[in-house]
């Protein structure tokens, strides 16, 4: 689809905004609709649009499969790690109150970190799935 100039230029203009919107949804999930699951999918959608318009091989150079697989693992480990950090802090598994001096701040920090882990894993898995399907033939 590289030959369609209109498609190429418009998608190139849109992709930064989609990425930015993904980050906004990730960070703003506490105060409005949004969160890690939505942000991950939106973030992945920007890369998938890039891969559709500019071939998968070009997208692979931007975000290689090895990086994505590592990112997927890091997301899950971050979620589990926050749980273990709560245990080290003297609470139960996934009890965030122990993460900061004030339990309220600890809870907020825990929620932000968990959402970040969710976002990383979801975005990476969606891209892995797209690459796997589009890389065949």
């Amino acid at each position: 689809m590289k030959d369609y100039m209109l498609l190429r230029i418009i998608s190139k203009m849109l992709i930064p905004f989609i990425l930015l919107f993904g980050l906004y949804v990730q960070m703003h999930g506490d105060y409005g609709p949004g969160g890690g699951f939505q942000a991950g999918v939106i973030f992945a959608a920007a890369f998938i649009l890039y891969a559709i318009v500019f071939e998968v091989e070009t997208a692979r150079r931007v975000a290689p499969m090895a990086v994505l697989a590592t990112a997927a693992c890091i997301g899950v480990l971050l979620d589990g790690g926050v749980g273990v950090a709560g245990m080290i802090g003297g609470g139960n598994f996934l009890e965030y109150g122990a993460l900061a001096h004030d339990p309220r701040h600890g809870n907020h920090l825990g929620i932000t970190l968990i959402e970040l882990g969710v976002g990383i894993t979801v975005a990476a898995v969606m891209m892995i799935v797209y690459y796997s399907f589009a890389g065949r033939r």
């Binding site: 999930g29 506490d30 105060y31 409005g32 609709p33 949004g34 969160g35 890690g36 997927a72 693992c73 997301g75 899950v76 979620d79 589990g80 749980g83 598994f93 996934l94 965030y96 339990p103 309220r104 701040h105 809870n107 907020h108 825990g110 929620i111 968990i114 959402e115 882990g117 969710v118 894993t121 979801v122 898995v125």
Partner: peptide
């Protein structure tokens, strides 16, 4: 009051039912 997060869905997802979410993330992975 407990989490400082006005979006109740996010609070329940990541805090009150954090174990559930950890499981879901593992399924997606």
């Amino acid at each position: 009051d407990e989490t400082g997060v006005p979006n109740v869905v996010t609070a329940v997802l990541a805090s009150y039912r954090g174990f559930d979410t950890l499981g879901e993330v593992t399924v997606i992975f």
